[in-house]
Amino acid sequence: MIMSRVSRMNRLLAIAAAASALLHGTGAHAQGLVPPGETAMREFLKQGKWSPTADDNISGELLDPAFVASLVKAHRADPKDETAIANLALIPLALAVAEWGVAPSEALPKDPVGKRWAAVESSGDGKHLMSYAKGGIGVAHIDSGILQRFFTYLEARQPDVVPEAQKAGFFRLKGTNFDRLYAGGGHCTKPVSEIGVDLVGARFEHTRWGYAGDNYCKQYDKGQVTVADWQVFRHGMREALRREDVQFELIRTWVRDVWAPSYEMVVVKGHADIREAFVIARIYNSSPRTAQEAFKQAVGLPGVDDRIRKELEVYASPGFGGNPRHKERWPYMQRAVAAYGAFDR
């Protein structure tokens, strides 16, 4: 047992040493906040299997433990360094939100998910850098108000994501909920009538999802979206997600809108452990109100583990705005905490 612990420690030290090779870039301020460095984001994209020709069929994404170690060590070296704080957000984004894995995992503790730190192996599970065909857009599955702001960004900075003739139709979809787009896009007809190619005839390589279900269609299919709208939407979003600067913008958006308020709540104002910010950020990604309630309910509990346990409970409690189904996310949230803890020494 002692030799096993020594061996594991040696592996951890080796990974930490390798982490020094992964440098952190610096970024410009975005609305008063420092975003993650471009070097860190570029490494994140690489480990998320992104490329300029990728499609919404990626799965099995794995963070390199040396990359995780580099983020943790940089923050440990200077806890007030704003870029290091922002870069640290990539851990909960990948592991708690997107449900990626970590490999090689020999130096890591027991996986809270119980899968030896493996990633989900289906493009229909978890979240992916190229997500556009189901659940939401990008690695955080943005929707609703954030998706609307993303449309505004594209209109101003990337208007050529669709051919000139379809620009008006594409940007007309700004403000439309993703589920309504999906429902009206052919998933509420029998048989499914989704168009399988983009505006220039290139095949969409994502999974062909079946009929969305009677309850779903009753809620979201309002007759306001057509299969042609869904085709235009997917063409534009796929093209946008194939651009590195767009991927950077989505990461910056998540850091600004989710990580920054979670970090401020937990660490700056709450004077609590950074590991709690990982958990609160995942809850905040679902509901800012539930995140605030979760942190409030944990105040006064004696240890980090007890506080995190309470925050997870609130996340799955309807009385606090949570959802019982969120229990399925607990192991992935704990995975992010465990990955940080492996190198927090």
Score class of each variant (00 low, 15 high):
Lys46Pro: 11
Leu312Met: 12
Arg11Gly: 10
Asp214Ala: 06
Ala240Lys: 08
Met9Ser: 14
Gly213Gln: 01
Gln31Val: 13
Gly27Cys: 03
Tyr315Asp: 12
Ile308Pro: 10
Leu90Glu: 01
Ile195Pro: 00
Val200Lys: 09
Pro35Glu: 10
Ile280Val: 06
Tyr284Ile: 15
Leu13Lys: 06
Phe151Tyr: 03
Arg149Phe: 04
Gly223Ser: 01
Arg8Glu: 08
Ala84Leu: 05
Gly322Glu: 00
Gln231Ile: 07
Leu95Asp: 02
Asp111Leu: 05
Phe233Trp: 04
Asp78Tyr: 08
Leu241Ser: 01
Glu82Ser: 11
Arg8Ile: 07
Ala19Gly: 03
Arg325Asp: 12
Gly114Asp: 11
Glu264Ala: 07
His29Glu: 13
Arg307Asp: 02
Phe320Val: 02
Val227Thr: 06
Val246His: 06
Leu250Pro: 10
Gly169Arg: 10
Ala338Asp: 11
Ser144Lys: 12
Leu147Tyr: 00
Val246Ser: 11
Gly196Pro: 09
Tyr220Phe: 12
Val192Gln: 00
Leu147Thr: 09
Ala119Pro: 02
Val139Asp: 03
Phe320Ala: 05
Ser144Gly: 08
Arg208Asp: 14
Asp229Ala: 02
Ala89Cys: 04
Val246Arg: 12
Lys73Pro: 12
Gln148Ala: 06
Phe204Glu: 03
His29Asn: 13
Ala17Tyr: 14
Asp229Ser: 06
Leu129Ser: 02
Gln292Cys: 09
Ala98Pro: 02
Lys327Gln: 15
Glu264Phe: 07
Gly145Val: 14
Ser193His: 07
Asp221Ile: 12
Arg309Tyr: 13
Ala212His: 05
Gln247Ala: 14
Cys188Pro: 05
Ala86Ile: 02
Ser286Gln: 11
Thr39Leu: 11
Lys46Asp: 13
Pro104Val: 03
